[in-house]
Computed example of a mutant assay.
Amino acid sequence: MDYNIHRERLTAEEYIDFLKNTDLGSQYPRERFDERIQMLVKTVPISLTARNSDGRLLGVCFGITDFAYWLFITDLGVVRDCIGHGIGRALVKRAHELAGGEKDIVMYTCANENAVQFYEKLGMTKPNDVMVYDRIDWTDFTVE
């Protein structure tokens, strides 16, 4: 499969359309969804896309980083009909390189149960040193 990875900021509308074609569409809370997605696409430090030669959006990777020590992959998705073609792996690798590379940057993510095997294949392990402070309202829903 032919595709190119770009540093690119998506519009909220384009990202929401993308979510409808991936398994990422169920990772966000319903509360203030549109407003929060607009903030996400506007401010996330690492914003990568994978597109085919026709410009079709095949994959997205968002990450937050300090460009010195760590990278947190917040969003990684590939459209369902393109899973298994190395797009997710290529996006993660490029994000890691942009953040500073594997020799300097520790990479984290919160993986849903269906993605754990993918991240394990990348060489990631489950940490026991992560703390969470969560007091937000979170109503599960799926972007459709």
Results as ranks from 00 to 15, higher is better:
1 M>P: 10
1 M>E: 09
2 D>I: 08
3 Y>T: 04
4 N>R: 07
4 N>M: 15
5 I>L: 07
7 R>F: 07
8 E>Q: 06
11 T>G: 12
16 I>M: 08
21 N>I: 08
25 G>A: 03
27 Q>Y: 13
28 Y>H: 14
30 R>S: 10
32 R>V: 10
33 F>E: 11
34 D>H: 14
34 D>F: 10
34 D>A: 12
34 D>L: 15
38 Q>F: 11
41 V>I: 06
41 V>P: 00
41 V>F: 07
46 I>G: 00
48 L>T: 02
51 R>L: 08
52 N>I: 02
53 S>T: 12
55 G>A: 09
56 R>T: 12
56 R>L: 12
56 R>S: 12
59 G>T: 05
65 T>M: 09
70 W>A: 11
71 L>G: 01
75 D>H: 07
78 V>T: 02
79 V>A: 00
91 L>S: 02
93 K>P: 02
94 R>I: 04
95 A>Q: 07
102 E>R: 06
106 V>P: 04
107 M>N: 02
107 M>L: 15
109 T>I: 09
112 N>Q: 09
115 A>S: 15
115 A>G: 07
118 F>E: 03
120 E>N: 05
123 G>T: 05
125 T>I: 13
127 P>A: 14
129 D>R: 11
129 D>L: 08
131 M>I: 08
132 V>C: 13
132 V>L: 15
134 D>P: 07
144 E>C: 13
144 E>I: 12
144 E>G: 14
